[in-house]
Design a protein around this nucleic acid. Structure first.
Lengths: 141, 141
DNA sequence: CACCGTTGAAACGTTAATCGTTATAACAAT
DNA sequence: ATTGTTATAACGATTAACGTTTCAACGGTG
């Protein structure tokens, strides 16, 4: 199993969908049962979503709720929340450092790559940003 | 230092640019000097680029050469080479598995996420695929 | 107020990938 | 044959993901 990418994003969408759809009890254990994972893992993701201001939980029984409407929550917002990404953070790519400035390629590679990678990441983010949680809900029948 | 993403892609573009530009000797050691890294790491990346049919190396002194023109080599092709990605491989995202099919969300989450993630990844790949090595070369002055 | 289920968070171990390094073998040019 | 280059295996350190156990804090209900 490749672990270089987290499943937190995937689980976060699952969790928020559960809350938005409200088919069942909304306890962490019930959500964990749907995701089929340990409740602590679910709470970890919920913690990140809370910190990002997407949802909150009233201590006590099943007190999870969204802080925005599903129309306002984009996948990009969720993606950034669970990966702790700031805006303008080149997250999807990494550039090797300390290239030799004595070489024309080494001297310019970082700025060239930064602009190219930023364009590729922006393309992905634009797509994620154009989809809202509300667009997914009808598909959970 | 975050290691969840490899710098191989970044180094691969550096390596191929060196070969395309030919400012210096083309030995692995000389490339390693520009990238400022261990020659073995460079050869590892070169090995992946060879396997992908992008370049080849004649054993002996500095025998590295491209198998296509810089106009034909896209960043997407390089990206796939160094990450060993097949077409239609959902690489940039991962979906948690074994969701509970007894729950409407759990039952549908995988197909919903797969189509959404595929769109986001395709957006990124379209951008990478629209840029060629030749477009970068003029910037290495 | 006491109890019980829920939430929150720390801590630990396992697994997997990155990546720098050393060592060794094979090969080409001179 | 010698020398420099390439190819590859192997090792260890580092880091992130993630499942699990454990315990403290809190709310609602009786």
């Amino acid at each position: 199993m490749k672990q270089r990418v987290s499943t937190r994003f995937s689980m976060a969408i699952h969790i928020l969908s559960m809350i938005a759809v409200k088919h069942t009890e909304q306890t962490g254990d019930e959500i964990a049962r749907s995701v089929n994972n340990n409740p602590v893992v679910i709470r970890r993701v919920i913690g990140m979503l809370k910190r990002a201001g997407i949802m909150d939980v009233r201590a006590g029984v099943g007190g999870a709720f969204l802080l925005k409407t599903p129309e306002e929550i984009t996948l990009l917002e969720i993606y950034r929340a669970v990966n702790e990404i700031e805006e303008n953070d080149l997250y999807a790519f990494r550039i090797h450092e300390d290239s030799n400035v004595g070489c024309p390629v080494g001297r310019n590679i970082e700025s060239v790559l930064h602009s190219e990678f930023a364009k590729a990441q922006a393309a992905m983010e634009n797509q994620l940003g154009s989809t809202t949680l509300s667009q997914l809900i009808p598909r959970f029948i």
